[in-house]
Simulated scan of single mutants.
Amino acid sequence: MRWIAYLVKCLLAGFVAMQVYYAVQIGLWISVDPSSTAFQRAERWRLCSWHWTCSVQSKWTPYDKISNNLKRAVLVSEDDIFFQHKGVRVEDMQKAWQKNQQQNQQKPQAGAKSKAVLRGGSTITQQLAKNLFLSSEQNYFRKGQELIITGLLELTLSKQRLFEIYLNSVEWGEGIFGIGAASEHYYATTPAGLDLDQAAALASALPAPKCFDKEQYCRKARIHFPTRQEFILENMGRVALAPIAQPKSSSKTAK
Protein backbone atom coordinates (compact mmCIF):
# COMPACT_ATOMS: atom_id res chain seq x y z
CA MET A 1 0.00 0.00 0.00
CA ARG A 2 2.99 2.29 0.47
CA TRP A 3 3.52 2.66 -3.23
CA ILE A 4 -0.11 3.74 -3.63
CA ALA A 5 0.31 6.41 -0.97
CA TYR A 6 3.55 7.54 -2.63
CA LEU A 7 1.84 7.72 -6.01
CA VAL A 8 -1.02 9.78 -4.55
CA LYS A 9 1.46 12.17 -2.93
CA CYS A 10 3.33 12.58 -6.22
CA LEU A 11 0.10 13.32 -8.07
CA LEU A 12 -0.95 15.87 -5.46
CA ALA A 13 2.47 17.53 -5.54
CA GLY A 14 2.33 17.72 -9.31
CA PHE A 15 -1.17 19.20 -9.19
CA VAL A 16 -0.15 21.84 -6.64
CA ALA A 17 2.99 22.71 -8.63
CA MET A 18 0.86 23.22 -11.72
CA GLN A 19 -1.45 25.63 -9.88
CA VAL A 20 1.56 27.57 -8.59
CA TYR A 21 2.85 27.82 -12.17
CA TYR A 22 -0.50 29.18 -13.32
CA ALA A 23 -0.59 31.70 -10.46
CA VAL A 24 2.94 32.98 -11.19
CA GLN A 25 2.22 33.28 -14.90
CA ILE A 26 -0.98 35.20 -14.26
CA GLY A 27 0.82 37.49 -11.82
CA LEU A 28 3.30 38.45 -14.54
CA TRP A 29 0.43 39.49 -16.79
CA ILE A 30 -0.47 42.36 -14.49
CA SER A 31 2.14 44.38 -16.38
CA VAL A 32 3.43 42.05 -19.15
CA ASP A 33 1.31 41.15 -22.19
CA PRO A 34 1.02 37.41 -22.94
CA SER A 35 3.15 36.54 -25.96
CA SER A 36 0.85 33.66 -26.97
CA THR A 37 -1.76 31.27 -25.60
CA ALA A 38 -2.00 27.50 -25.45
CA PHE A 39 -4.72 27.59 -28.10
CA GLN A 40 -2.62 29.78 -30.40
CA ARG A 41 0.36 27.46 -30.08
CA ALA A 42 -1.81 24.43 -30.83
CA GLU A 43 -3.26 26.12 -33.91
CA ARG A 44 0.19 27.20 -35.09
CA TRP A 45 1.35 23.59 -34.85
CA ARG A 46 -1.77 22.34 -36.67
CA LEU A 47 -1.41 24.82 -39.50
CA CYS A 48 2.37 25.11 -39.82
CA SER A 49 3.99 22.13 -38.08
CA TRP A 50 7.79 22.60 -38.31
CA HIS A 51 7.72 25.36 -40.96
CA TRP A 52 9.49 28.58 -40.02
CA THR A 53 7.00 30.78 -41.84
CA CYS A 54 3.37 30.56 -40.77
CA SER A 55 0.10 32.25 -41.69
CA VAL A 56 -0.98 32.67 -38.04
CA GLN A 57 -1.72 36.37 -37.40
CA SER A 58 -1.64 38.16 -34.06
CA LYS A 59 -1.18 41.84 -33.24
CA TRP A 60 -1.53 43.27 -29.73
CA THR A 61 -3.71 46.36 -29.29
CA PRO A 62 -3.93 48.29 -25.98
CA TYR A 63 -7.37 48.48 -24.38
CA ASP A 64 -7.81 52.21 -24.97
CA LYS A 65 -7.04 51.75 -28.68
CA ILE A 66 -9.97 49.35 -29.19
CA SER A 67 -13.32 50.75 -30.30
CA ASN A 68 -16.04 50.84 -27.65
CA ASN A 69 -18.33 49.55 -30.39
CA LEU A 70 -16.33 46.32 -30.47
CA LYS A 71 -16.17 46.03 -26.67
CA ARG A 72 -19.93 46.39 -26.32
CA ALA A 73 -20.61 44.00 -29.20
CA VAL A 74 -18.39 41.30 -27.69
CA LEU A 75 -20.06 41.67 -24.30
CA VAL A 76 -23.49 41.21 -25.86
CA SER A 77 -22.28 38.19 -27.81
CA GLU A 78 -20.32 36.41 -25.09
CA ASP A 79 -20.98 37.73 -21.58
CA ASP A 80 -23.23 40.73 -21.10
CA ILE A 81 -22.64 41.07 -17.33
CA PHE A 82 -18.90 40.41 -17.44
CA PHE A 83 -18.10 43.52 -15.39
CA GLN A 84 -20.62 42.56 -12.70
CA HIS A 85 -19.95 38.86 -11.96
CA LYS A 86 -16.94 37.27 -10.24
CA GLY A 87 -15.89 34.98 -13.06
CA VAL A 88 -18.61 32.33 -13.10
CA ARG A 89 -22.33 32.47 -13.87
CA VAL A 90 -23.61 29.54 -11.84
CA GLU A 91 -27.13 29.58 -13.28
CA ASP A 92 -25.82 29.41 -16.84
CA MET A 93 -23.50 26.55 -15.93
CA GLN A 94 -26.41 24.64 -14.38
CA LYS A 95 -28.47 25.11 -17.54
CA ALA A 96 -25.55 23.94 -19.68
CA TRP A 97 -25.07 20.88 -17.44
CA GLN A 98 -28.76 19.97 -17.68
CA LYS A 99 -28.67 20.39 -21.44
CA ASN A 100 -25.69 18.07 -21.73
CA GLN A 101 -27.29 15.51 -19.43
CA GLN A 102 -30.34 15.44 -21.70
CA GLN A 103 -28.12 15.12 -24.76
CA ASN A 104 -26.11 12.26 -23.27
CA GLN A 105 -29.32 10.38 -22.37
CA GLN A 106 -30.50 10.43 -25.95
CA LYS A 107 -29.87 7.28 -27.94
CA PRO A 108 -27.07 7.81 -30.47
CA GLN A 109 -27.86 7.23 -34.11
CA ALA A 110 -26.55 4.14 -35.84
CA GLY A 111 -22.83 4.42 -36.48
CA ALA A 112 -22.48 7.50 -34.26
CA LYS A 113 -20.15 7.49 -31.28
CA SER A 114 -21.55 8.61 -27.94
CA LYS A 115 -19.53 11.35 -26.31
CA ALA A 116 -19.91 13.38 -23.13
CA VAL A 117 -19.70 17.03 -24.04
CA LEU A 118 -19.56 20.20 -22.00
CA ARG A 119 -20.77 23.28 -23.81
CA GLY A 120 -22.24 26.66 -23.08
CA GLY A 121 -22.39 28.56 -19.79
CA SER A 122 -18.82 29.89 -19.99
CA THR A 123 -18.04 33.50 -19.10
CA ILE A 124 -15.36 35.57 -20.80
CA THR A 125 -13.00 34.80 -17.90
CA GLN A 126 -13.63 31.06 -18.28
CA GLN A 127 -13.03 31.26 -22.02
CA LEU A 128 -9.82 33.16 -21.33
CA ALA A 129 -8.67 30.52 -18.82
CA LYS A 130 -9.19 27.80 -21.40
CA ASN A 131 -7.49 29.72 -24.22
CA LEU A 132 -4.48 30.74 -22.14
CA PHE A 133 -3.60 27.41 -20.57
CA LEU A 134 -5.78 24.50 -21.63
CA SER A 135 -6.77 22.49 -24.68
CA SER A 136 -10.05 22.47 -26.59
CA GLU A 137 -10.75 18.97 -25.28
CA GLN A 138 -14.10 18.84 -23.50
CA ASN A 139 -14.35 16.83 -20.28
CA TYR A 140 -15.13 17.38 -16.62
CA PHE A 141 -11.51 17.30 -15.43
CA ARG A 142 -10.58 20.09 -17.84
CA LYS A 143 -13.66 22.02 -16.75
CA GLY A 144 -12.56 21.74 -13.12
CA GLN A 145 -9.09 23.04 -13.94
CA GLU A 146 -10.69 25.83 -15.94
CA LEU A 147 -12.65 26.94 -12.86
CA ILE A 148 -9.49 27.04 -10.74
CA ILE A 149 -7.68 29.17 -13.32
CA THR A 150 -10.76 31.39 -13.61
CA GLY A 151 -10.57 32.06 -9.88
CA LEU A 152 -6.86 32.90 -10.12
CA LEU A 153 -7.50 35.28 -13.02
CA GLU A 154 -10.31 37.09 -11.22
CA LEU A 155 -8.29 37.40 -7.99
CA THR A 156 -5.14 38.68 -9.71
CA LEU A 157 -6.17 40.82 -12.68
CA SER A 158 -8.63 43.68 -13.01
CA LYS A 159 -11.73 43.23 -15.15
CA GLN A 160 -10.41 45.69 -17.71
CA ARG A 161 -7.10 43.81 -17.94
CA LEU A 162 -8.93 40.49 -18.34
CA PHE A 163 -11.05 41.94 -21.13
CA GLU A 164 -7.97 43.45 -22.81
CA ILE A 165 -6.17 40.09 -22.83
CA TYR A 166 -9.32 38.33 -24.08
CA LEU A 167 -9.80 40.73 -26.99
CA ASN A 168 -6.15 40.29 -27.96
CA SER A 169 -6.06 36.50 -27.75
CA VAL A 170 -9.45 35.15 -28.83
CA GLU A 171 -9.71 33.40 -32.20
CA TRP A 172 -11.39 35.33 -35.04
CA GLY A 173 -10.81 32.96 -37.95
CA GLU A 174 -8.34 30.30 -39.04
CA GLY A 175 -4.96 31.53 -37.85
CA ILE A 176 -6.38 34.93 -36.83
CA PHE A 177 -5.99 35.81 -33.15
CA GLY A 178 -6.87 39.06 -31.46
CA ILE A 179 -8.78 42.11 -32.58
CA GLY A 180 -5.67 43.75 -34.11
CA ALA A 181 -5.28 40.97 -36.66
CA ALA A 182 -9.04 40.53 -37.12
CA SER A 183 -9.85 44.17 -37.89
CA GLU A 184 -7.00 44.31 -40.39
CA HIS A 185 -7.89 40.96 -42.02
CA TYR A 186 -11.61 41.57 -42.47
CA TYR A 187 -11.90 45.35 -42.84
CA ALA A 188 -8.37 46.70 -43.47
CA THR A 189 -8.73 49.04 -40.50
CA THR A 190 -7.51 49.38 -36.94
CA PRO A 191 -9.46 48.22 -33.85
CA ALA A 192 -10.13 51.88 -33.04
CA GLY A 193 -11.75 52.43 -36.43
CA LEU A 194 -14.42 49.72 -36.25
CA ASP A 195 -17.94 51.05 -36.76
CA LEU A 196 -21.14 49.57 -35.31
CA ASP A 197 -21.84 47.12 -38.13
CA GLN A 198 -18.24 45.92 -38.32
CA ALA A 199 -18.06 45.44 -34.56
CA ALA A 200 -21.33 43.49 -34.49
CA ALA A 201 -20.19 41.29 -37.37
CA LEU A 202 -16.90 40.45 -35.66
CA ALA A 203 -18.65 39.74 -32.36
CA SER A 204 -21.13 37.45 -34.09
CA ALA A 205 -18.19 35.37 -35.32
CA LEU A 206 -16.88 34.41 -31.88
CA PRO A 207 -18.97 31.25 -31.33
CA ALA A 208 -17.72 29.82 -34.66
CA PRO A 209 -14.78 31.93 -35.90
CA LYS A 210 -13.42 29.43 -38.41
CA CYS A 211 -16.85 29.15 -40.05
CA PHE A 212 -17.09 32.96 -40.19
CA ASP A 213 -13.76 33.02 -42.01
CA LYS A 214 -14.00 29.93 -44.24
CA GLU A 215 -17.07 28.06 -45.45
CA GLN A 216 -15.29 24.70 -45.28
CA TYR A 217 -15.57 24.83 -41.47
CA CYS A 218 -19.33 25.45 -41.42
CA ARG A 219 -20.48 21.82 -41.52
CA LYS A 220 -20.53 21.55 -37.72
CA ALA A 221 -21.46 25.16 -36.95
CA ARG A 222 -25.14 25.82 -36.26
CA ILE A 223 -25.19 29.59 -36.38
CA HIS A 224 -26.76 32.20 -38.64
CA PHE A 225 -24.37 35.14 -38.51
CA PRO A 226 -26.72 37.86 -39.89
CA THR A 227 -29.38 37.04 -37.28
CA ARG A 228 -26.81 37.06 -34.48
CA GLN A 229 -25.36 40.31 -35.78
CA GLU A 230 -28.81 41.93 -35.74
CA PHE A 231 -29.37 40.79 -32.14
CA ILE A 232 -26.01 42.25 -31.10
CA LEU A 233 -26.76 45.59 -32.73
CA GLU A 234 -30.10 45.80 -30.95
CA ASN A 235 -28.55 45.19 -27.52
CA MET A 236 -25.22 47.03 -27.60
CA GLY A 237 -26.64 50.05 -25.83
CA ARG A 238 -27.58 48.18 -22.66
CA VAL A 239 -24.19 46.74 -21.63
CA ALA A 240 -21.74 48.42 -19.24
CA LEU A 241 -18.05 48.84 -20.02
CA ALA A 242 -17.05 49.17 -16.37
CA PRO A 243 -18.19 47.85 -12.99
CA ILE A 244 -21.40 49.50 -11.84
CA ALA A 245 -20.73 51.46 -8.66
CA GLN A 246 -22.95 50.49 -5.76
CA PRO A 247 -24.73 53.42 -4.06
CA LYS A 248 -23.22 54.30 -0.70
CA SER A 249 -25.51 53.82 2.27
CA SER A 250 -26.09 56.85 4.45
CA SER A 251 -26.98 56.90 8.13
CA LYS A 252 -28.66 60.30 7.75
CA THR A 253 -32.40 60.35 7.42
CA ALA A 254 -33.79 62.48 4.62
CA LYS A 255 -35.95 65.32 5.85
Score class of each variant (00 low, 15 high):
V56H: 12
L241R: 10
V239S: 11
Q94G: 10
L147Y: 06
S250C: 14
W60N: 02
L47P: 10
V20P: 12
Q246K: 15
N68V: 15
G178Y: 02
R219K: 15
Y21M: 15
G175R: 12
L75T: 09
T61Q: 14
L28P: 01
H85V: 04
L167D: 01
Y21I: 14
Y140V: 08
F225H: 05
Q127D: 07
L75P: 02
R89G: 02
Q109F: 11
G237H: 14
T227L: 00
Q198I: 07
S136A: 14
N168W: 02
L12E: 04
L167F: 11
V239I: 09
N168K: 12
Q127C: 12
A17D: 06
E234S: 05
C10M: 07
V24C: 14
R142T: 01
V88Y: 03
P34L: 05
E234H: 05
A245L: 11
F177T: 04
R44Q: 13
C211W: 00
P191V: 07
W45S: 08
S204K: 02
I124K: 01
I176A: 05
W50N: 08
G144H: 11
Y217W: 12
K71M: 09
L134I: 13
W172P: 01
G180R: 04
I179Y: 05
L11C: 10
N131E: 05
I66K: 03
T53W: 08
Q198L: 07
I124V: 06
L134P: 03
I66S: 03
K210A: 05
M18F: 11
T53F: 13
L128I: 09
Y6E: 03
H51A: 10
L241G: 15
